[in-house]
Amino acid sequence: MNTLRIESTEISPKIVYDANKYHFEIIGESRPENVREFYDPVIEWMDNFINEINIEKELNFDFKLEYFNSSSAKYILDILYKLTEYNAKGLIITINWYYEDGDDDMLEAGQEMSRMVSFKFNYVIILD
């Protein structure tokens, strides 16, 4: 399966899902003009990937979000649910949730998401 690569803009994050290295990442700000148009293809890619999962590998997912609006939050939760589906198929997954030093809102958002999908995150502080 091809790697999913979306470059960042001022209003949308960079997304790279490397289907060979099993390294996925979302980086930047997320407040796209049309949130469905932006995230639906990402979810579709993830739906297709589930059929090709190699459980001999391990998946690392880095969330390095500086900011996401409330509509994007719904899709981030959907992405996390897809990851739990992968995990249920036997794939070992590590989720790293990055937040800037002092950004309690971003840390708490990660903790809430983790609780909602019942999946443990690693929290990684970004120091200035």
Partner: peptide, 26 residues
């Protein structure tokens, strides 16, 4: 508020206008 947010995010659909009904809670 966190409980309310959780309940909302589980049950909401993104509207035509792109809203999830989470803005005020946020």
């Amino acid at each position: 508020l966190k409980k309310y947010y959780e309940n909302r995010i589980f049950n909401t659909q993104i509207s035509e206008k792109g809203g999830a009904g989470l803005g005020l809670i946020d």
